[in-house]
């Protein structure tokens, strides 16, 4: 998915969070968004998703203005853990995944996705019993179930142990190698072995984008 952010300024009430941000992303790119807490990383992503309402002509998804964009099904979004989901009520991994299916997908394909993310054996578990890392994988499968062209991950490895962080990024790298564009919000870029193509660093609402030479890891 192609993304163009053109001179984006956004704020809540009287506070400006993002100031004149501009960057472009092509299909298959892997963008890391870095910055301190409160630098506007999640705000930026929520603007792209249409959750934060922005003025017209500032964000384009596949050349369509986000204010007119209807195909958000093309974007798989994995929010920060404990963000919006109601966890206490019993629901199984399968129930979460199946309720989110909006496109034709066979049972085999679902099982394959679960297996790929290493949570095949957890499909009938209540989500209350899962660890942070396992839960994160459930949300990734949920975001992949509708075959998105772009995957947005907001701090996906918070609370996940080191070994699983490595495995996690291997999977993300291979999804990216399959052609899915990825946007990863992270506060610690050194920790990850993700194969970025671009890094956008946000500081006090202002952003600088850099291209990164890609490694072979996929």
């Amino acid at each position: 998915m192609r993304i163009t952010v053109d001179n984006l300024t956004f704020g809540y009430d009287y506070r400006t969070v993002l100031k004149e941000i501009s960057f472009k992303m092509n299909s298959g790119d892997f963008l890391a968004i870095i910055g301190d807490n409160g630098s506007g990383k999640s705000t930026l992503v929520k603007c792209m998703l249409g959750i934060n309402k922005v003025a017209p002509s500032q964000i384009f998804l596949d050349d369509v203005d986000v204010t007119n964009y209807k195909q958000f099904l093309n974007i798989g979004y994995v929010p920060q853990i404990f963000d919006d989901f109601n966890y206490e009520f019993p629901i199984t991994v399968n129930e979460i995944i199946h309720s989110s299916i909006m496109r034709d997908i066979s049972q085999d394909e679902i099982l394959e996705l679960l297996d790929k993310m290493g949570i095949l054996e957890l499909q009938n578990e209540n989500i209350n019993t899962l660890s942070g890392g396992q839960l994160q994988r459930v949300f990734i499968v949920r975001s992949l179930i509708n075959q998105p062209k772009l995957l947005i991950l907001d701090e996906p490895t918070v609370g996940v142990d080191r070994k699983n962080v490595e495995n996690f990024y291997k999977t993300i790298n291979s999804l990216n190698a399959e052609g899915i564009s990825v946007i990863l919000i992270t506060h610690n870029i050194r920790e990850s072995n993700a194969n970025f193509s671009h890094v956008l660093s946000l500081h006090n609402g202002e952003g600088i984008i850099k291209e990164v030479p890609r490694g072979d890891e996929a």
Partner: peptide
């Protein structure tokens, strides 16, 4: 979906 995760539901259209 709406009950468990409203923003995800919006994203799914």
């Amino acid at each position: 979906i709406i009950s468990f995760d409203e923003s995800h539901a919006r994203l799914l259209g």
